[in-house]
């Protein structure tokens, strides 16, 4: 096996191959739970946890699984981990669990997870798979949180509402309110707001990419190097 560029794995996961913004995977939870920052963050972290565990196990067993049962085995592993995570959340983050509801079991069907298992973990060593899982997961979480934050902000003029669900009672005070008279553009919180928000985020990412592409083209016409901003 040749060398693995960890930096590349990390930048891919967080940015270049961001599962939500580039691959457009896992959109169902992405749309459904991001009506507040805390919800987004919660589901993002749960997804990351599952992703990490599944990537690690798939990578560990990658040499022993026959081709014809590869997918069923992956699905089995992922489903087990999701169930475990669901039970844990039910036990320790009860209210958040109630809010995220069906979307926790639905992590099973998040294409990101089976996608990474199939495309990365089943072909790469354990360490690299772990790094990949964390960066992909954090990239996904970042988009969920960002989308949640902007929708919460526009929709009801607050940030970190319900933080105690995730961080315990001390976090109750974290909630920020913009302006008591803010009328709240409800649309942002309702489902259409999710589509518009995601669209805007994707556009923003493309804009940034293009800006840097242009900058790089202007600066260095010589060798095509790797993108440098992480």
């Amino acid at each position: 096996m040749s060398e693995i560029s960890y930096r590349r794995i990390v930048t891919d996961g967080l940015w270049h191959n961001n599962q939500a913004l580039v691959a457009l995977l896992g959109l169902c939870p992405l749309m459904a739970v991001t009506n507040s920052l805390v919800n987004g963050l919660g589901l993002g972290l749960a997804t990351t946890a599952v992703l990490l565990m599944s990537n690690l196990s798939v990578s560990t067993i990658r040499h022993w699984v026959r081709a014809e049962v590869r997918l069923p085995v992956f699905v089995l592993i992922i489903a087990s981990f999701v169930t475990a995570v669901e039970l844990v959340m039910h036990a320790w983050f009860h209210e958040l669990y109630k809010i995220l509801g069906i979307f926790i079991p639905l992590i099973v069907t998040n294409c990101t997870i089976i996608g990474r298992a199939e495309a990365f973990a089943s072909r790469n060593p354990v360490a690299a798979s772990g790094v990949d899982a964390v960066s992909i997961g954090l990239g996904f979480t970042a988009v969920l949180s960002l989308l949640g934050a902007s929708r919460e902000l526009i929709g009801q003029g607050t940030l970190f509402s319900g933080a105690h669900l995730l961080f315990g009672e001390v976090a109750r005070a974290w909630e920020l309110t913009l302006n008591a008279d803010y009328p709240g553009v409800l649309l942002a919180i309702l489902p259409p707001g999710a589509f518009m928000g995601l669209g805007t985020l994707i556009a923003l990412k493309n804009l940034i990419d293009r800006y840097f592409d242009r900058r790089r083209a202007e600066l260095a016409p010589a060798p095509a190097t790797e993108p440098e901003q992480a």
Binding site: S5, A119, F120
Partner: peptide
Amino acid sequence: EAADPASENEKN
């Protein structure tokens, strides 16, 4: 063998 992983990374 030398070529294989390179193409792998290309795709991911």
